[in-house]
Nucleic acid binder design. Structure first.
Ligand SMILES: NC(=O)c1ccc[n+]([C@@H]2O[C@H](COP(=O)([O-])OP(=O)(O)OC[C@H]3O[C@@H](n4cnc5c(N)ncnc54)[C@H](O)[C@@H]3O)[C@@H](O)[C@H]2O)c1
Ligand SMILES: NC(=O)c1ccc[n+]([C@@H]2O[C@H](COP(=O)([O-])OP(=O)(O)OC[C@H]3O[C@@H](n4cnc5c(N)ncnc54)[C@H](O)[C@@H]3O)[C@@H](O)[C@H]2O)c1
Lengths: 270, 270
DNA sequence: CCGACTTTGTGCATACCTTCACAAGCGGTA
DNA sequence: TACCGCTTGTGAAGGTATGCACAAAGTCGG
């Protein structure tokens, strides 16, 4: 077991001399304060799933469901129920054995872990096809990610309101981002401009970036980038089509073989 | 070692009686034909990266680069070079020791593995904000994923050309998809409609789906779904913001502690 | 209050992925 | 040809994530 669970362990201190008591896997060195935080212990994959559970649970709340079992929730989220329970155990133990989880309690705890108790203002850069769609999309606002600023290099767009917010010129990015406390930057510019835009966002103090441009961004260690890359998604799907076709033709070939030789059955091994 | 590499091993057969020769990890049962295909052996994570390498390499071709080392390519793709070499080894051994990889050769082999030698026609369902952006996006066409059909339930849209293609009514989905050999369906409808649209795509024979609607789709085993979920991406970023803030405040608290007690240094353990 | 039943939380085995480290192989050079 | 330096390809190790299976812990009916 790696994760330290339980409510009051955000900060564990070991005053020099008084050590040795801890059942920690790593022995703290002499004269050292060990600060361990729960957050870091949650695997990234689990975080992504928690966000999905949260959405499913929100739907449940709307339907008036008050309690849900891991089996039901996992089915709705399309995952294995053991995995779901393990994911929830990172958040804490808020279920009742024999009953399940209280939906509202779970929602509030997942929200806390995901940091959704704070507001996260979003800036969209590049108000073209995609930028327009994003700016007009209501799904951000409603989930606690208000779009607070829009930027484009095109001067014809400057001042034009899109989705209720006037577009700013890219040159004002630092001032506006600081002023409106932007914490997430969304890049929807052509690929050529993406790295430059990213650099400007970073120097404006933005530490989280969602990138739609098909380029690999280079950023400092303290900046978190996530990319949405449709070409990659398509190609992964294409790979699966190809794999399926290969399998089918292999099976076909094997079956032909059977008809020639005297074999009983064909097994496709993983 | 699990992966069977080399060119001519797509179909390995063991005729009954003549077995025992194979150095396979699993002993084939009596009277059984074992068909093993290379494709399945490539980990999903590697496939996603191969798509990224492919794009970087395409850029290299345009710049006139003919040869590239794993070190250079991995830097450009933002991954560890050992990982890159292992990923490429799934594709085959096409590098030259002491030199690197021939860019064009690599491109063609990755394209082959990803199944990009075939054309994959795409249908977009739900021509709203996002659907318009997708239909107008040139990036699909240029990468071998022509948008071949658009669908919407809104009759005012029927027949209206978007990005050069007239919108069809959703009720014609089966006929049109079959006719135009659609192999990938993109769902850009409101969440409420997504599952129904998905079902219709599946019964039209579409086996690959890219879903933008924030719902978990239920599909048969032989259908591959990938989702693009902006809310989840945002929430993962939010989690990192929260984690960073926690770390900062923990360190702050610890430093305060130091000033009170007599401690030498603070270590934040992973 | 008890016992049957349900469901959580988690130890453990397994599978998967990443990273290191280095032998093998290749081109260039003398 | 023989050597040298560079880079690939890949065992092996380590780490992370997944899924099973079950004890622990609760509910609920009697
Ligand atoms: N449209 C889609 O559906 C879609 C899908 C997947 C990926 N993408 C990617 O998203 C990005 C945007 O796509 P799009 O179709 O909206 O393109 P677009 O050409 O319609 O819009 C790009 C916008 O960015 C602005 N821009 C250019 N340089 C800029 C800079 N330096 N600073 C600020 N703004 C700048 C342009 O003025 C324009 O308004 C591209 O990288 C594209 O590859 C788009
Ligand atoms: N707009 C964005 O930037 C954005 C971002 C992330 C996710 N999404 C998601 O993408 C989806 C579409 O978003 P949008 O902003 O384009 O919505 P939208 O309301 O602008 O467009 C939805 C379109 O789907 C059509 N539609 C509804 N029911 C349909 C059905 N049964 N069959 C076919 N078409 C149908 C509607 O007529 C409309 O044209 C939503 O699920 C949304 O959550 C959108």
């Amino acid at each position: 077991m790696v994760a330290q669970r339980g409510e009051g362990d955000e900060v564990v201190t070991t005053t020099p001399g008084t050590s040795a008591a801890q059942a920690a896997p790593v022995v703290p060195e002499q004269d050292e304060v060990v600060v361990r935080e729960r957050a870091r212990a949650i695997p990234e994959a689990a975080v992504a799933r928690l966000a999905v559970y949260l959405r499913v649970l929100s739907g449940m709340v709307d339907q008036g469901v008050t309690t849900i079992s891991s089996e039901e929730l996992s089915a709705a989220a399309g995952v294995n129920s053991a995995k779901l329970r393990k994911d929830l155990s990172y958040v804490g133990s808020y279920g009742t054995r024999g009953v399940g989880y209280d939906v509202e309690v779970l929602v509030s705890h997942i929200e806390r872990i995901l940091g959704l108790t704070r507001k996260h203002s979003v800036a969209v850069v590049g108000i073209g096809n995609l930028g327009h769609a994003l700016a007009n999309y209501g799904g951000f606002q409603s989930r606690g990610f208000p779009v607070a600023a829009l930027f484009d290099v095109d001067e014809d767009l400057t001042g034009v309101p899109v989705g209720g917010i006037p577009v700013n010129h890219i040159d004002d990015i630092t001032t506006v981002c600081v002023e409106r406390e932007v914490s997430i930057g969304v890049i929807a510019t052509p690929p050529q401009a993406a790295q430059a835009v990213c650099d400007r966002l970073v120097s404006a103090g933005v530490q989280c970036i969602l990138n739609f441009a098909p380029v690999v961004l280079q950023v400092p260690d303290d900046v978190e980038v996530r990319k949405v890359d449709l070409a990659v998604e398509m190609q992964i799907l294409s790979f699966h089509v190809a794999r399926r076709a290969d399998e089918a033709s292999a099976e076909q070939a094997a079956n032909d073989l059977i008809n020639g030789v005297g074999v009983d059955r064909v097994v496709i091994r993983p």
